[in-house]
Design a binder for these strands. Structure first.
Lengths: 367, 367
DNA sequence: TCCAAGCCTGAATCGATCG
DNA sequence: TCGATCGATTCAGGCTTGG
C-alpha cells in the first residue's frame, strides 16, 4: 500500500533526533519529498488580555510565553504561510499533514492549507473529557480543539488504516470526533521546580490515534514544533521514525530525557484508550430542544396530584416553584429528593406517559 | 439587560417575513444596526472541486503562482466578504452572528470573520448523533459540523443566557460540543414528489439552543440563507421576530407553508432562568438603614477567622482596616477581590447567617 | 491496604456600573 | 471617557491525605 521510505533516502535524514533551531530553516535543510507525515502544533496566538482568577480567587496559569505573541493577524498569517511552505517541500507526494489549533488560529491555518494546495481529508474534533470551565459564565465552556488532516495534493494517495481505527473504535467506523482526556498526572512532564515543563503538552492518546490511523511502521514523522516531544514519544513506541524540531533548549532537554526512557513495544503502547460504558446522561432540556415536549406543555405528577409547565430552557414552573424536574418534584412532594424522570408524565392520546420514555428514545438513537 | 429593538426601529423592519432576492442586496436595503442576531448557513462551496483542478498539469512548485487554483477560492472568499460586510452593517452594536459550515468552507468563513473585526466568542461543534457513514472507507466518518459565534466587535456587549443553557444541560455549564441528531422524519420537509425539499435542512434542536442561549424574546433574528426556514420556525415558536432572505422560490414557498402552521408557545414558558447579574443592586448600607443590622454589630468571616464591626455609614471596620464589605474581606484574606455578600455572616440565635440572606429579603420586598 | 474526602489544575481571546 | 468599585463566577479527573 503505502510507500515506505527507501533506505537510501532515510540515510540522508536525521532520524530519531531533536534538531535545534527555527523550524523553517531546519526543514529547508532537509531533502525534499522525504517525509511521510507531519504533525504540527503551532503557536495558537491566544491574544489574552489580563489575568483570570477562579471563583476561589486562585489565578489561572495561562499561556503567556513569548513564542505565542504575534502583533497582528497579518503577522500570524505570514508565519503560517512560511512554515507551511517549508513543510510542504519536505513532504513526499504520498505524505500527509496534521495540524491542531483552537478557534484563535485554526481558521487561518485551514485557509492557508487550502491556499497552498493541500487537500483536506477530514477535520477532526478533539472533545476534551475534562476541559477547564468558563469561570466567568460569559461563554460556553471551550471544550474542544480542532485538527485538520490533509494530503499534499488533491487526488494524491495517502495512508489510512481504516481497519485499525475501526478496531480502536469497537468495530465501528472511526468518526471525526474523538473524546480523549487532556494531559495530566504522571504523563505530564514537570521541570525541576515541579511545575509543568510545557504549557500545552498534548496527550499521547491523541498522537496514538493519529499515528496508528495515518502512518505505517517505519514511516518518518516530522514535528516542526516538537515541544516536549509527545509526537516523538508515540512514534518511538509505535515503531515509526521521528524528526523533531524545537527552538527552546529547555523543551529539547525535557523531550530528550523523555525519549531516552521509552522502550519500544512498551506495554503502554499497546493499550488502547478505553471508553467508559455508562449510560449517557440525557438532560431534560434535550427533550424540549428536540421538540419531544413543547415549552408551555403541562406535565402531571405521579398520581396526578400536581401539574407543572415546561419552560424553553428545560426547567419546570409549577405553583411559583421553578427549577429542574427533580427540584420541582421534590418541593411539591415535600421530599428531600425526587427522580423527575419517573415522577413526571405527559399526555398523549388521553393517556399519561412517564417522560422517562422519551429519554429512552434518545438513548436508543445514540447507539 | 439586553437592549430590545425600539418600536420605532422595528416598524421599519419587514418583521416575520420571507424576502425574495439576493441576500446582499436585500440586507443593504434594511436599516443599519437594526438586527439582534444573524444566523447564516451559507453555501458550502462543494462545487469547488472541479474548479480547483488544474487544467494543465504543469508542475509548478505548487505554491503561490498557480492562479487558477487560487481563483476559485478567491471567488468564494469574495462572496464571503461581500455578504459578511452587508450582514455586519445591519447588526446592532450589541448584536452577534452565528455561521455554520463544514471543512470545505468553515476555515475561509472563520478567517474572513476575523478579518472584518468580528470577535469570536466560541466555535461550537455540532456532533451528529446519526451521521452518514463513509461508504468507501477512505476517511473518517464526517460526523460533525462547525459553528462560529461572534460578536460585532471586540469588547462589545452581547446576549448570553448563561443560566438558561446551564439549565438545558442539567445544571452544568453548556460546553462547546453539542450532540444533536440530524434532521429526519416528520421534521424533514418534503416536496410534492416526496423528496426532501432542501438538501441541507438543519434540525430545529440546533436553532433552539442557539436562540435560547443568545437571544431574548422580542429580538430580531435575520437569516440571509433562509432555505426552508428552520431559523424562522424556531424563532416564531420562541417568540423572537425573524427576517428570512431566500433566492429560490421553491424554498420560500415551502418555508412559508411551514411557518404558517406554527403556533407560538405560551409566554410564560418562553421566560428563561435569569442570572443574578440582572437582579437590582442593593447597597450594604441599606441593611443598616433599615435596622436589619445595627451599627456596632459584629460580622464574622467565612470560616469565622475574622471579625469586623458594622459602622453607621455601611462600612466595616476590623483590625485597623476600614472600607466596604468587599474591601475589608479582600484585605483580610489577602485576596485580589472578595464578594462581601457571601463572605460576611451575622449571628442570629447562636447561628451564623450570611448577610446575603438580608439582601434577598430586600429584593423580595422590591417585587 | 483500602476507601472517602479534599485538593489541584487545565491552550482562556472570561465585566458592569457608578461617579 | 476613564478610573474606582462592586460583586458574579467552576467541571472533571487524577493525586494526596487522612482515617
Amino acid at each position: 500500500m503505502t510507500k515506505t521510505t527507501t533506505p537510501a533516502a532515510q540515510a540522508m535524514l536525521p532520524l530519531n533526533q531533536i534538531l535545534a533551531g527555527d523550524c523553517i530553516e531546519v526543514m529547508n535543510s532537509l531533502p525534499e519529498a522525504s517525509v511521510d507525515l507531519i504533525f504540527a502544533d503551532p503557536p495558537y496566538n491566544l491574544q489574552l488580555r489580563g489575568d483570570l482568577h477562579r471563583p476561589d480567587n486562585s489565578r489561572v496559569d495561562a499561556v503567556d510565553d513569548d513564542w505565542d505573541q504575534f502583533g497582528s493577524f497579518a503577522e500570524y498569517d505570514r508565519f503560517t504561510r512560511d512554515w507551511l511552505t517549508a513543510a510542504r517541500r519536505v513532504l513526499k507526494p504520498t505524505g500527509a499533514i496534521w495540524v491542531i489549533g483552537s478557534y484563535h488560529n485554526i481558521f487561518r491555518l485551514g485557509a492557508e492549507l487550502q491556499n497552498q494546495g493541500f487537500w483536506m481529508l477530514n477535520d477532526v474534533v478533539w472533545r476534551k473529557a475534562n476541559p477547564m470551565p468558563n469561570f466567568r459564565g460569559k461563554r460556553l465552556t471551550n471544550a474542544h480543539e480542532t485538527l485538520i488532516w490533509a494530503s499534499k495534493t488533491e487526488g494524491a494517495k495517502y495512508t489510512f488504516n481504516y481497519e485499525a481505527l475501526k478496531a480502536l473504535n469497537e468495530g465501528v467506523q472511526m468518526r471525526s470526533d474523538w473524546v480523549l482526556p487532556i494531559c495530566t498526572g504522571h504523563e505530564r512532564l514537570k521541570d525541576e521546580q515541579g511545575d509543568k515543563a510545557h504549557p500545552t503538552q498534548k496527550p499521547e492518546s491523541l498522537l496514538h490515534r493519529v499515528l496508528v490511523g495515518t502512518t505505517n511502521p517505519g514511516d518518518v514523522v516530522l514535528d516542526p514544533f516538537f515541544g516536549t516531544g509527545t509526537t516523538g514519544a508515540v512514534a518511538k513506541k509505535l515503531g515509526r521514525h521521528y524528526i523533531g524540531i524545537e527552538r527552546e533548549e529547555a523543551y529539547r532537554k525535557a523531550a530528550q530525557k523523555r525519549l531516552d526512557r521509552i522502550r519500544i513495544f512498551d506495554r503502554e503502547a499497546l493499550e488502547v484508550t478505553g471508553s467508559k460504558r455508562a449510560e449517557p446522561r440525557v438532560p431534560f432540556g434535550t427533550l424540549v430542544e428536540r421538540g419531544m415536549l413543547s415549552p408551555g406543555e403541562e406535565l402531571y405528577s405521579l398520581g396526578s396530584r400536581f401539574k407543572a409547565k415546561v419552560r424553553a430552557d428545560g426547567t419546570l414552573i409549577g405553583r411559583d416553584i421553578k427549577g429542574s424536574i427533580h427540584q420541582v418534584g421534590a418541593q411539591l412532594e415535600g421530599a428531600p429528593s425526587c427522580n423527575g424522570w419517573t415522577y413526571w408524565h405527559f399526555k398523549r392520546e388521553g393517556k399519561l406517559v412517564p417522560i422517562d420514555l422519551l429519554r429512552q428514545q434518545i438513548r436508543a438513537e445514540m447507539n
